Amino acid sequence: MIKAFIKHVRRFPWVTNVTLYGCLFAGGDFVHQWFSQRDKMDWSHTRNVAVVAFSFHGNFNFFWMRFLERKFPGYSAGMVMKKLFLDQTTAAPLATSAFYTGVSFLEGKEDVMEDWRDKFLNTYKTGLMFWPFMQFLNFALVPPYVRTTFSGCCAFIWATFLCFSRQSGDGTAGAALEWMFPSKGDGAEQADKMKRKVLASKEASSSIEQASGQRMWWPPCR
């Protein structure tokens, strides 16, 4: 299976890498929606994410990886660090910008830069806690002909975060963690609110019953 895949990648490197990258990236949006709003999936948003992933991210990543390997060939520490530095200072902000503006454009928003202005900086900072480690492994261990596929596997996780940040987050890791692992305090607070509502309802019902009882025993007018 693995040998057949590697043979296919070597024979059709561009098609295989870009297709896998685009599918994995779009899958990130599906996962986000499945866990946050599975009863009302927005397939148009998944379609827009897939269009951006196939048309830009997959192709850009493929040719970017080829450029870096030709410019800084090999697996030596110096070459790996040069590729990593250039990747995080050039490709990372460009890819993030393309996501926010591209999806907004496909949705027909009047101001396609709104999400970018509000969330780009936080998103880029969060990316620095994830992508340098993933790309270090990519440049140091993964053969060049499957680096885009490896990036796509990482992008599956990253796209889930991006789609959450665009729809209901602010680009910070903290907001994503709160979404993934809601604190017990929040649940206790909601339970307390429900208790107060139930008690208020019971008190209102009791007041009505007392008022009805008083009317029943009120002496008739003569």
Rank of each mutant, 00 (worst) to 15 (best):
G74N: 05
F105C: 14
R147M: 10
A155K: 04
F99M: 03
F136V: 01
G58I: 09
C163Q: 11
F156P: 00
L106F: 10
S76R: 07
Y124R: 02
F85H: 07
S165Y: 12
Q33N: 12
K40V: 08
W116D: 00
G22Y: 11
N138C: 12
P143A: 14
L121Y: 09
F72G: 02
C23H: 05
F156K: 08
F139I: 06
T160W: 00
G127I: 05
V49L: 12
F139V: 05
F130C: 14
L68T: 04
L162M: 14
L24D: 09
T149M: 14
G22F: 07
S44E: 15
D118E: 04
S44N: 15
G58K: 04
F139N: 02
F60D: 08
P144E: 05
D39G: 03
R70Q: 15
W158D: 05
A155D: 03
L84E: 01
A95L: 09
V103T: 09
F85N: 00
F30T: 11
D118A: 06
S165P: 01
R166H: 08
V142W: 06
F30Q: 11
T160H: 00
G152L: 03
M113K: 07
L68R: 02
L137R: 02
N61E: 14
L137M: 10
A92V: 04
E69W: 08
F67E: 01
R147S: 12
L162S: 05
T126N: 10
G127C: 03
D42V: 09
K83M: 10
P132D: 08
D118M: 03
A92D: 03
K82Q: 11
R66L: 14
A91R: 06
R117D: 00
C163S: 14
V80P: 05
F136C: 08
T160G: 06
T90Y: 11
A53H: 04
M113E: 05
F120N: 01
F62H: 10
R66S: 10
H57M: 13
L84Q: 07
C23P: 00
V52T: 06
E69T: 08
G22I: 02
A50I: 10
F99K: 06
P143G: 13
F35L: 14
F35S: 07
A92Y: 11
S104N: 05
K109P: 00
E69K: 12
A53G: 14
F35A: 04
N122F: 06
T149D: 00
T46Q: 12
S55G: 05
L137I: 11
G127Y: 07
M129C: 13
A92K: 05
Y124K: 00
V112A: 02
E110R: 15
W43N: 10
A155R: 09
S55D: 03
K119Y: 05
R70E: 10
A50G: 14
S36V: 13
A155E: 03
T46M: 10
F67G: 01
F25N: 13
F56V: 13
M129Y: 14
V51F: 12
S55K: 03
L121M: 13
P143K: 13
F72Y: 15
H45I: 06
F164S: 03
F99A: 01
M79H: 12
D42N: 15
F67N: 09
H57Q: 09
G108D: 13
K83R: 15
N61K: 07
R117C: 06
S55V: 14
A26I: 11
F85E: 01
E69H: 12
C23I: 13
A98M: 12
L94E: 02
